[in-house]
Design a protein around this nucleic acid. Structure first.
Length: 649
DNA sequence: GAGTTTGAAACT
DNA sequence: CAGTTTCAAACTC
């Protein structure tokens, strides 16, 4: 299957390919492709992943606000409810409408009907003129050619909104195809739903918003957690890339590489009408024009980002994005974006002030797109206070002022992982950390504080890294997917996706990926002499030992913590008594002269004791008492010095 | 810390 | 797809 259309390939870094969606589609059994009754329970199929390929997207608020009527929807084969609008775009075919959430349906136009094929693909063809519902293309909803916007939204069974917003330009052929003909090359929007998971596709902000581009920033308030979406692309192609438009201009797009944990942020300049994205399935003959466009999105900021209801989307209050930096936040997530609109001359010098590793990719052709690709782990690795200034050299030649300082606080899984469970530093020496041997690379993270040699797994070597990612994905499209995921129903909750291949370790050492993941080997393992199964006495023994060791470690840690706390408390309580005005005493108060004077005092005391024929014990006591007095005098003097000289001198 | 063992990844 | 090599982590001493 052609995963990435030529136009998106030209638009995005090479490595941005959706393996997860591919796998997802491949994993979907046939029964899931058939349309079940709406009331049918959730299909049992569970993707072999623990990390749900949810997607964070920013859905333009005005997309739904532009809608004027209500209740346009249909259902997918998986039971997902879809909402299609506006009705003027669609002339009906077969699928019956279903009721959906008022939050979603409000302000949406009615449509007569639309067909969602049993393969979970919603195909909307733009056909000029009258209805195309001539039966020649079953399962196809027909768009009118006016370039109108289409919103596909709905609710999953869990009530989460599913939205697909399309720019009006989507029903034009992609500019990247050059000779594309809108009529001959109908736009197809392929929507892949995943069992029980909401789907969101977000259109290009610039395309959607038109003159309302200033509203884009507010749209950032909407964060959607999404399962899988494929959008854009032409006939026979599937797009699984994720670009989430933030605004225009500038546009900030999150790009998710499904199957991996790379999160990208792309800042894109405004696209003009001439360079507006046009989707088509035909070949890309003009890659220079690359507008922001909606693409497949996936996960990784996943899990922790809650789904925002369609109502929330509509409640976003448009507010012009002016020169002042705006902090766009969502009440439901800590994610935010600061986007000051500053004029070009002020920006260009900032190119030299970018944080290390920031990648600026020259704009293509038309020059209206410049972007930076920042893997989210990098975002999480840089200080939160760091601002990333992104722009494009070619952008400077345009009339559109661009300066985007984006501070992304991705509060997703990767962030928490990065902060709470920092990856063990790698020690790669020969792989340049660009092969899956490297744990950092394999987990989609940059090397950070590692001990590697000749490391290329950083933004200084972004091009090499991207090539390596692509190479890995070529070899194995799911190379960046978690290996440990859910097994089939009735099996263990977690299991290795490929199974191990151990021969000598008995699968009871960390050489074994199953054992390392603290899971038992399964039927798909090809190991020899496996002892990593439920009833294995060796395994039980090891588990007990490991548990005991863990308890010991925890106890030791607790003891250390308690001791440290006690010491700290003691110092806190005693410090005021030995200081003057708080703070530390001058650290140079024990000078050579002071020490000599102290020793003289002690010797004098010793001589006194000797002269008076005191017993040794008494002599020692007298000396110690003298020492105590000396110390008190020293401390007292030091305190006075500190008072006279606030700076430690 | 150096050397060995191990199995996944990469290569052929 | 199987066999071999490479690689880095796990392990041992």
């Amino acid at each position: 299957m052609d995963v990435v259309s030529p136009e998106l390939n030209s638009l995005l870094p090479d490595e941005i390919m959706d393996t997860e969606a591919i796998a997802m589609e491949e994993e979907l059994p046939a029964e899931h492709l058939a349309a079940p009754p709406q009331s049918e329970p959730e299909p049992p199929q569970v993707p072999m992943e623990t990390e749900l390929p949810e997607i964070v997207s920013l859905c333009p608020a005005t997309t739904s606000m532009q809608m004027t009527s209500t209740d346009a929807q249909c259902s997918t084969s998986s039971g997902t409810q879809l909402l299609l609008a506006p009705s003027s775009l669609i002339s009906g075919t077969t699928t019956s409408a279903k009721t959906t959430s008022p939050a979603v349906t409000q302000n949406l136009p009615k449509i007569s009907s639309v067909t969602v094929p049993a393969n979970h693909q919603l195909i909307i063809n733009k056909v000029s003129g009258a209805s195309a519902a001539d039966g020649k293309s079953p399962g196809t909803a027909v768009l009118k050619p006016e370039g109108q916007k289409l919103l596909v939204a709905g609710l999953s069974k869990t009530g989460q909104p599913i939205m697909l917003a399309l720019p009006h330009t989507w029903n034009k052929p992609a500019t990247t195809q050059g000779t594309g003909d809108a009529k001959a090359q109908p736009t197809q929007i392929k929507m892949l739903t995943t069992v029980g998971k909401p789907v969101i596709a977000v259109s290009s902000a610039s395309q959607l918003m038109g003159s309302s581009s200033t509203l884009q920033a507010q749209q950032l308030k909407t964060l959607q957690t999404v399962k899988s979406v494929q959008t854009v692309g032409g006939v026979g192609t599937s797009q699984f890339k994720t670009i989430i438009p933030f605004s225009t201009p500038p546009n900030v797009q999150q790009i998710q590489v499904p199957g991996s944990r790379f999160h990208y942020v792309r800042l894109v300049t405004a696209t003009t009408g001439s360079s507006t994205a046009q989707s088509s399935g035909s070949t890309n003959t003009n890659p220079s024009i690359q507008p922001a466009k909606p693409v497949m999105m996936n996960a990784a900021v996943r899990m922790s980002v809650p789904i925002v209801s369609a109502q929330s989307i509509k409640q976003v209050v448009p507010k012009p994005l002016t020169s002042a930096a705006q902090v766009v936040t969502t009440s439901q997530t800590p994610q935010r974006l600061i986007m000051p609109a500053t004029h070009l001359p002020q920006i260009q010098p900032n190119l030299t002030n970018l944080p290390p590793g920031t990648v600026l990719t020259p704009a293509h052709g038309s020059g209206n797109m410049g972007y930076a690709v920042l893997p989210a782990p990098y975002v999480t690795q840089i200080p939160q206070s760091a601002f990333v200034t992104l722009t494009s050299s070619s952008t400077f030649s345009t009339a559109t002022p661009i300066q985007t300082q984006a501070r992304l606080s991705l509060n997703g899984l990767s962030t928490s992982e990065a902060t709470s469970r920092p990856r063990k530093p790698c020690n790669c020496t020969r792989s340049q950390c660009l092969k899956l041997y490297c744990d950092c690379f394999a987990n989609g993270e940059f090397c950070n504080n590692c001990n590697c040699v000749n490391c290329f797994n950083n933004l200084d070597h972004e091009s090499e890294r991207l090539k390596a990612i692509k190479s890995c994905l070529d070899r194995n499209p799911v190379a960046f997917k978690p290996k440990i995921g859910k097994g089939k129903e009735g099996e263990s909750d977690r299991r290795h996706s490929k199974g191990c291949n151990c021969k000598k370790s008995g699968c009871l050492k960390n050489y074994c990926e199953c054992y390392e993941a603290k899971i038992m080997c399964s039927s798909i393992c090809k190991c020899m002499g496996c002892k990593n199964f439920e009833e294995s006495p060796e395994r039980k023994t090891l588990m007990h030992l490991a548990d005991a060791a863990e308890v010991r470690v925890q106890q030791q840690t607790a003891a250390k913590t308690k001791l440290s706390s006690q010491i700290s408390d003691l110092l806190t309580r005693t410090t005021p008594a030995i200081t003057s005005g708080g703070g530390k005493l001058p650290y140079t108060f024990v000078t050579k002269e002071v020490a000599e004077a102290t020793c003289d005092c002690l010797l004098e005391q010793a001589e006194q004791a000797e002269l008076t024929d005191q017993p040794q014990a008494v002599a020692e006591r007298l000396i110690l008492e003298e020492f105590g007095r000396c110390l008190r005098r020293i401390i007292s003097f030091a305190g006075k010095v500190k008072t006279d000289c606030p700076i430690n001198c």
